[in-house]
């Protein structure tokens, strides 16, 4: 049974690595947009890789997007707070930048496009589109909520709320 679990983890490694790599690129790219300095950008990339790796692992283990996003944000936030010695006071900002690649902007776009289509549709078959759009919208709210909760709960619990 342990062999099977190890084999399953090894099988998902390439995909995990792919997601972590592009999570790192996305986090560092947005870090540049947010004007993070050179050293902090490296930490943003590390945080992005960690967040995406944990989220992908959570989803591969059968977790929902929302649950996996919460877990990933919480792990990233905890790791950043525990690394405060090296990251300095910017640890919370770095954890946030690492979680930016998990913000479900594409779902938001999908939901709004669906609503626009329904508003302009002349057929009676709009129910599936409405349901799809509402589902996407609910996923956006719950995933953003999960990321925000995952980031802030460790900060409250570990009393890392300094200025």
């Amino acid at each position: 049974m342990i062999d099977a679990a190890v084999a399953a983890v090894l099988a998902m490694l390439p995909y995990l690595g792919h997601q972590a790599l592009f999570g790192a690129i996305a986090a560092a790219g947005f870090g540049v947009l947010f004007n993070f300095g050179g050293r902090a950008l490296i930490w943003c990339a590390v945080a992005g890789a960690l967040a995406l790796a944990v989220r992908t692992f959570g989803q591969q283990c059968g977790g929902s997007l929302e649950a996996a996003s919460f877990l990933a944000a919480a792990v990233t936030s905890c790791a950043a707070i525990l690394s405060r010695r090296w990251l300095g006071v910017a640890c919370h900002a770095i954890a946030l930048a690492g979680c930016i690649p998990m913000v479900p902007g594409a779902f938001f776009g999908q939901a709004l496009l669906g609503f626009m289509w329904v508003a302009g549709a002349s057929t009676d078959h709009t129910v599936p589109a409405i349901v799809g759009s509402v589902q996407a919208f609910v996923r956006v709210i719950s995933t953003v909520g999960a990321i925000g909760a995952g980031l802030t709960i460790p900060a409250y619990l570990l009393r890392s709320r300094q200025f």
């Binding site: 792919h18 997601q19 592009f22 999570g23 690129i25 996305a26 986090a27 560092a28 790219g29 947005f30 870090g31 540049v32 947009l33 004007n35 300095g37 995406l52 690649p101 902007g105 594409a106």
Partner: peptide, 23 residues
């Protein structure tokens, strides 16, 4: 200091392309 606009544009492009791969 701020990053130069060309670097911000390049980094943002890379970030969105990476987002695309994630999606």
């Amino acid at each position: 200091p701020r990053h130069p606009p060309w670097l911000v544009a390049l980094a943002t492009g890379a970030a969105c392309a990476a987002f695309g791969r994630l999606l």
